[in-house]
Nucleic acid binder design. Structure first.
Lengths: 354, 354
DNA sequence: TTGAAAGCGCTAACAC
DNA sequence: GTGTTAGCGCTTTCAA
């Protein structure tokens, strides 16, 4: 028995309503709607008229349930307003467009209540494939995810090896950035947004590790006071952190920022303090977001291989989706792939010439 | 007869599988999953065990079809990598969070093939409510949209009055920005990203209109060469447009940029050209994105009332959704609301002190 | 406390 | 060329 609220007015018009009004079966209407053959020309005509008249539109939920497909790919990002993720989403959406699939973006929301997070994860099953940015995501959440849907992870390194994973080379990238400053003469380099001593393999920790490595390789001593936390990692906190450092009397002649966004906050702080970049302090970011070409000065940064990341993610996902639709279980297929994309230094104006 | 590919291996586990394994009915499993009462403690226990063992997860598509709800709100934006939309999305997602609904973002993709655009629109019916940013959207597309789902429009002014609509005050905002430069001494002001002579009421045209208005009010003459097109509207094109202007020998002492992003490109170009801001050229943007506080110099801009826009959009949407779920037809309810949020000048460093 | 059964709106075998 | 019918996976009366 139906539970539908048959309440008075305007029900949404269904394929059945169209069929009735056009005096044909729902099958025929379905064929017309989907442009399938085997329908008489004038029947098609009549159906089309009724569709227009009644303003019928197909119910995508019902269609999806029936078809077992949605032709949509989900992207889960920690925040919707971070340039890096917007730019990643755009790359993915562009690449997906020719395949006729839609990219749909959701926020995982680091701060979310468990209940909501769960609901948000459950929704992901609606997509034919899912791309998850693991930044700030709890690895154990991920582990208990137990997905039927094809999934590719993108970002740093989580513990479980249950999914295909495209990683940035956080450690070597940060080491390259740090070495660049060291080679150009900096000796007291701030790790802005650095994280320390945790066993967690999250992004700030890994990048901090690269910072240490570069110092070790070049035999430059470290000062623990130069590792400054920045939370959340945005422009305002990057700005504030630099000011605190200066207020606290910490001296430095270089900054490795954990992300470009944090670096841009830092640049602004240095300008306010009348500290010249790169003459007095060199600054390097990480991510190579578009904004780095337009800051003053233009920001030297690490390109984690953005184009290649997007391409590889999609390639992995295609493979998994093909397996999936062939009815193969996840486990039967080849073991999960894990690729690290090489990072590349992009020298602009915030560091000195050699 | 089922069409499912009963192919060899791992089918996705359904509620029926759980029921069978736990020796109960699907009804009971459903109740357990949804935490409903009227289930024996040990039955519940057993079901839960089976759920865990089989790794069952509910199929949200099926649930949605049955429930007639998705608990998700769709947001359609022209691009995923524009700060303004990322920041709008974040505001909306934050406000939605307490209501237990998820925001889901899709790109309308101005450049998209019709077919894809249609599919993208069809998908919107999956949401309980839809927020559409009409920037760059064809009004006729919108008109033939014929939506059953509650919709609120946000942005500039389209022709059809078929939906609730929250508008920025593009004209007065741009007039305020322009007047500000005029009052601070600029006399030859570039309208960067301006659009002219069209009958279209799109965002660039409306903002250009405001630019004209301010000149008229203050009795300052116009020069057609100062209205410079910028397409697409991003940092790179803003940058290029300023350089072209200078290369073409056009002189100017102020810039009203159609968006903050374009203004940031302009700032970079001026820096490269050795033109001092605000001493030689004053610059004002539009949107009040977060980045304006961190550019060098900080950007004076127009705040279109971002917080209020998000709040009003959601308020309209709630109302429509309530009507909708009460079974009322769109037409029976009060006429569509149309609100213009007042714009506000935010003075920073890219314009001179009075 | 539990289950049988209907049906959300759609599509695809299959028969005619 | 057209219709009959089953059923995608789930929730919800209603009866037991």
């Amino acid at each position: 028995m139906s539970t539908r609220k048959t309440s008075s007015a305007s029900r949404v018009v269904t394929i059945g309503d169209v069929a009735r009004a056009a005096q044909v079966s729902t099958t025929t209407v379905s064929k017309v709607i989907n442009g399938l053959p085997r329908v008489g020309a004038e029947t098609r005509q009549r159906v089309l008229e009724v569709v227009a008249e009644l303003g019928y539109q197909v119910n995508p939920t019902a269609r999806n349930l029936r078809a077992g497909r949605t032709d949509a790919i989900g992207l889960l990002v920690p925040e919707l307003d971070r340039p890096y993720f917007g730019q990643l989403a755009t790359r993915l959406a562009n690449a997906l467009e020719p395949t006729g699939r839609q990219l749909v973006v959701q926020r995982s929301g680091v701060s979310r209540a468990d209940e909501l997070a769960a609901a948000s994860f459950a929704r992901l099953r609606m997509y034919d494939g899912v791309i998850i940015s693991v930044v700030g995501l709890n690895p154990s959440d991920l582990e208990q995810l137990n997905f039927q849907t094809p999934v590719v992870l993108v970002g740093e390194r989580p513990l479980p090896r249950t999914f295909d994973h495209v990683m940035m080379d956080n450690v070597e990238g940060a080491a390259t950035a740090t070495a660049h400053l060291l080679e150009r003469g900096s000796r007291r380099i701030v790790m802005l947004g650095g994280r320390d001593g945790t066993t967690e393999q999250d992004m700030p920790t890994l990048r901090t590790l690269g910072y240490y490595k570069a110092h070790a390789r070049l035999g430059v001593p470290l000062d623990a006071r130069l590792v400054a936390a920045v939370l959340p990692m945005d422009m305002a906190t990057g700005y504030a952190a630099v000011r605190s450092l200066v207020d606290a009397g910490v001296t430095f002649d270089g900054i490795v920022a954990v992300t470009d966004v944090v670096a841009i906050g830092a640049l602004r702080a240095l300008a306010d303090l009348g500290i010249r970049v790169p003459a007095e302090v060199q600054v390097v970011g990480f991510d190579n977001i578009d904004e780095t070409e337009f800051s003053t000065p233009r920001l030297t940064t690490i390109d984690p291989g953005n184009e290649q990341i997007a391409g590889t993610v999609l390639q992995f996902l295609e493979t998994r989706m093909a397996e999936h639709s062939a009815g193969l279980p996840r486990t039967s297929s080849k073991p999960t792939a894990e690729v690290t994309i090489p990072a590349r230094l992009v020298i602009r104006e915030s560091t000195r010439r050699a």
